[in-house]
Amino acid sequence: MNRAVDPRELKVHRDDGVAKGDVLLEVKDVSLRFGGVKAITKISFDVRKGEIRAIIGPNGAGKTSMLNVINGFYTPQEGTITFRGVERRAMRTTDAARQGIARTFQNIALFKGMTTLDNIMTGRITLQKSNLFAQAVWRGPALREELEHRHRVEEIIDFLEIQHIRKVPVGRLPYGLQKRVELGRALAAEPALLLLDEPMAGMNLEEKEDMSRFILDVNSQFGTTIALIEHDMGVVMDISDRVVVLDYGRKIGDGSPEEVSKNQDVIDAYLGVPHE
């Protein structure tokens, strides 16, 4: 593969103080209701540092809701989330970002009026510090900081092979590229935990292969821990280390891809065996 930048240069500098293989995120007995709708019922699972963890399940199973709980967007009625050893239930989404949780969305949530470059630069916003006056004159510390982050962002742009669309407003990009820019924006935050909500939805085979490759590279080269939701079982089997299966807001399976695919409950859920 021919890349301008060796991804190994792009080290995650956010040291999360968790050793590889240890539990990075623990979800414990979490329940989430919207009025009468039980989106999540007493779910527990963990994500270990350095792994790719897939969350699967039929439509409406509560997968997206789970990610929203993890990054503080929803507050569960019961249960706790422990991230990097710190336990919490309610928190502000901005704090989750500062602790190192970044994500992409099922329905792309890019900043449509901004260019690819600006979108990805926005991913680094929590890492930028220069004050108002330095920014106003665009000299000294503000410019130095901007260049430093620009340098990092250019590495991500090279890594994702999107140099040619750097200055294009993302609203004009085709769907597959938008998904890629969104991954870039999340990567730019150098997250300790990367949440991907259906990163390959709506893509053709080639785009899916590219995206799988990027996800694997991010995981192996940068050491980023990833939790991803995906419907394509082939992809899930190929790239994930462990899988958690949800159905109607409950956990019905958890384990390696092989274990999960042999689990009778999981097979029933996917084949649509009616619930008693």
Partner: peptide, 24 residues
């Protein structure tokens, strides 16, 4: 064109995503 401007435009284009990226 700097950090502040990007935080404004992010708020304008998609406020929820902006918050999730850590923009208050």
């Amino acid at each position: 064109r700097g950090r502040l401007g990007r935080s404004w435009m992010a708020m304008r284009d998609m406020d929820i995503a902006a918050q999730i990226m850590g923009i208050s």
